[in-house]
Design a binder for these strands. Structure first.
Lengths: 154, 154
DNA sequence: CCCATTTTGTTGACGCGTCACCTACATTAA
DNA sequence: TTAATGTAGGTGACGCGTCAACAAAATGGG
């Protein structure tokens, strides 16, 4: 008897497949929506949300930790957003290496325009599909998986 | 009173956030795993799985529908996989426009090597985090969201 | 038979994410 | 005070995904 079998049971495989398909379709549709009706990428959106929620001015590494990305990803992202005028960089007096990322007026305007539409799509495609209890259950399951992953290597 | 409020309730927002974070971390880790221990991208993996599950030879458009991608994405993907020797293209006698995508011997070997490791990571990071009932519930919720999305425009 | 439409599949440009590597400043201990 | 190490952040190459446009073959009326 194997400690861990090579394959999943058919129930496990079916559950995994359903989850993957749902998640892919949902994320795909939402990010295309954001792009289509605001001109921003999903990454622009999330960065601006987090940044403006926290006062619109933040150290680069704090932003990295907040969004839970790799710093190189964020560096490229901030570069593109700077080019588009959504944020600017300011240097940090206390730390010669440091940088502040600051949301511009255009950045605020972009996120304020985009957010209600995005929320509406989230509601329409996701929230409305589920009962209060189901949503609650999904949150619990998600947190459980998150907690489990943190204990695992890699 | 608004028919649809502008924002989510704090419970809804928290649930959405948990789901998004879980899904991002999980998919991210799994696709980096596949890449790291087989040299294939997650896209290579899924295409080879679907293709070899269906006899290893398939019309391009059937593959597109099976994987549920856009054809242009698949076209690029098949191009890259051809370059790496995982699949080849054969022309179709019945339909002058048509193409068969065929898994090569190297393609079969690649997926046979990669699959057990991938399944092990899925089990380790995801399946093992949940009870049988929780997994079952998640599958039901996923299918419900999928069904709901299909009724929605866009 | 012929023209319009649909289907099959490709292409090129462009933005995004990862990986490996790198620079510069800060910190700490000898 | 200087050498080692850690931390902040950037860079370039490369593969991936989307969008819009395209070519060529099939199909279905009239």
């Amino acid at each position: 008897m194997d400690a861990t079998p090579r394959w999943l049971t058919s129930e496990q495989a079916a559950a995994w497949d359903s989850f993957i398909r749902m998640q892919e379709k949902l994320i795909g549709r939402l990010s295309r929506q954001v792009q289509a009706d605001s001109g921003m990428s999903a990454s622009d959106y999330i960065v601006l949300v987090k940044l403006t929620e926290t006062g619109g001015r933040m150290r680069f590494m704090d932003l990295v930790k907040l969004v839970e990305w790799e710093k190189s990803r964020m560096s490229h992202q901030v570069g593109r957003m700077t080019k588009r005028g959504l944020v600017t960089k300011e240097e940090c007096p206390d730390d010669g290496r440091g940088a502040f990322i600051v949301a511009t007026t255009a950045g605020y305007k972009a996120i304020e325009d985009a957010a209600p539409k995005h929320v509406e799509h989230v509601r329409r495609l996701f929230i409305n599909a589920l009962t209060h209890e189901e949503l609650d259950t999904l949150a619990r399951i998600s947190n459980r998986v998150l907690a489990h992953m943190e204990k695992q290597p890699d």
